[in-house]
């Protein structure tokens, strides 16, 4: 019997890493290999959730409802989950996802804004979906503050509350204290979603397990925003070696990683300066590719954009601020050059 339930988000968080260009063929192959390895939940959506296809976050290559349907067809045992961010997606998007066969609705909000998710959590229930409350950027709030928000979600009737380290900024102690604070006050299950910007995603997930976490997110090869997520195949291997049963075949998931997911982005797993900076400065990991593009366009440094975003305490969803910051850095650089002449 597995000690925790694993949700693989390669086809949702990983969407950030491929600028939302997943094809139906890729989705079918990934779902089929993860399903065969025994992954119990597979998330499929635009990186910013259903309804995320946009100028601000990037347009999807293929309509995500089409991808969800394909995933549902391929999965023999796995449940298909979707992410939905209130303010970006709408209840209509959630209804369409349910129609397409998704059975888990993960409602994602910034860690201080749980109360905007009540109507979506209620709708998930009406649609017969399992609901998950997903508290993003949880490194920006104290363990006590996070626990209060988790209690709100619990009172709305979610099945699980997730502690989400969207910036990959948590140390092991940070993760431990947050999971433990949430675990103490809710009656529902608790999950952790870790990013690897500080190379701590697996370690934080294992520490969370010691604090009694019931669910863990991974992405195969770590394919995901920023420096990537907790790599599913490594988490499974580390757990099995520690005597923690995962219910997933370690060699099967390694094959899925190497043969099916790795070819999508062969360089996944390298933590370069930009990826590390996200974790160091506590910046939303999904900003990375947008910041790189803006840096190129406005002739400024990605590093400076990321540090300025951290200074301004920008939250998930504010990708439009990247253009603003890049233009301001460009103006400052031009002014400095004039002053120097």
């Amino acid at each position: 019997m597995a000690r925790f339930r694993l949700t693989d988000s390669t086809l949702r968080d990983g969407s950030h890493a491929v600028a939302h260009q997943f094809t139906e063929d890729q989705v079918r192959r990934v779902v089929s290999s993860l399903d065969a390895a025994g992954v119990p939940v597979i998330e499929v959506s635009h990186g910013d959730g259903v309804g995320g296809s946009s100028f601000n976050y990037g347009f999807s290559h293929t309509d995500e409802m089409h991808l969800i349907r394909a995933a549902v067809e391929e999965a023999k045992q796995a449940k298909i989950a979707v992410l939905m961010v209130p303010g970006i997606g709408t209840k209509d998007d959630l209804r369409k996802a349910a129609d397409a066969g998704a059975t888990v609705a993960r409602i994602a909000v910034h860690c201080t804004e749980a109360d905007i998710s009540q109507q979506h959590i209620a709708l998930a229930g009406e649609l017969g979906m399992e609901s998950v409350g997903f508290l993003m950027m949880a490194s920006m709030i104290s363990p006590e503050g996070l626990a209060e928000q988790a209690q709100l979600l619990d009172s709305y009737g979610v099945g699980t509350v997730y502690v989400v380290d969207s910036a990959g900024a948590m140390t092991i102690d940070d993760a431990r204290r947050r999971v433990s604070a949430v675990k103490k006050v809710v009656s529902c299950q608790v999950g952790i979603h870790a990013h690897n910007n500080l190379s701590l995603a697996v370690a934080n997930s294992l520490a969370a397990l010691e604090e009694g976490v019931d669910q863990i997110d991974g992405c195969t090869t770590g394919l995901g925003a920023g420096a990537g997520n907790c790599p599913t195949e490594i988490l499974v291997a580390a757990c099995e070696k520690s005597g923690i049963s995962t219910g997933i075949d370690p060699l099967g998931i390694m094959d899925a990683a190497q043969d099916t997911v790795r070819p999508i982005r062969p360089d996944q797993g390298v933590i370069d300066r930009d990826g590390l900076l996200l974790g160091y400065a506590g910046v939303y990991a999904s900003f990375l590719l947008h910041a790189k593009r803006a840096a190129e366009r406005y002739g400024v440094d990605t590093k400076d954009i990321l540090l300025e975003l951290g200074e301004r305490k920008v939250v998930g969803g504010q990708e439009d601020m990247i253009i603003d910051v890049a233009m301001e850095l460009q103006r400052r650089a031009a002014a400095a050059q004039v002053a120097g002449q």
Binding site: N56, G87, K313, I323
Partner: peptide
Amino acid sequence: KAIMVLNPADPPILMRNTVF
């Protein structure tokens, strides 16, 4: 398509709108 984001920064941010 309209997108709304709430930002809890302290001090509070001015209302911002980006139009594409």
